[in-house]
Amino acid sequence: MNLAVRCQDLVKTYDTGGQKVTALNGINLEIEAGELMMLVGPSGCGKTTLISVMAGILDQDDGSCEVFGENLLNMRSRDKLNFRARNIGFVFQAYNLLPSLNAAENVSVPLIINGMKRVEAERKAISVLEHVGLGERWQSLPSQLSGGQQQRVAIARALVHSPRLIVCDEPTSALDHETGHNVMTLLKDVALHKDRTLVIVTHDARIFDFADRIAEMDDGHIIKVKDTK
């Protein structure tokens, strides 16, 4: 078994105005490479905290989280940045595209962060935009695109630097049913392959069918992992 993510006894607590809130309370989870894992559960159950820890943008208080065999907590901050830049792709609920950059420029950002020259990065970004069906719209600003198109640009941005793990936070919740379905089809067809893992946080039941496994969370725990294959 080729593991992409291994979380053991993960604990994360937030201090909210003097009150401790435990977001992750002893999470144990393994995700295989090439797998599409969905994290589902009610609001505040710790889904987003868990993918933040997996993506290396949040440190846990206790336990370990290995991503492709690397323990992120032990990494020096520069190494963690480089690890994130090379290995992690992000898709957000609100797309989070830079509004003053056109589609190609937005998609090229991860490549530029990884040190590629701008012209070359934009050329590659356009080719990835063609893969997601937006080759003709590479010059459009986010404000000139529909919600579904913006999410496709965000997917292209998450894919362009060939990361091994893509974390998606509610990628369809801002979209109507048909567009959400199209976005998930695209994610599964274009983003997922044997070396790349997708972890999707959602409570959009309409897309559960796309998952290989679904981990149900509640109150900082994983209460059930369901195999849907």
Partner: peptide, 13 residues
Amino acid sequence: LLQFGVLKAMGTS
């Protein structure tokens, strides 16, 4: 700030 956050998450130092 959110845009800077996105850049930071994606690996910008």
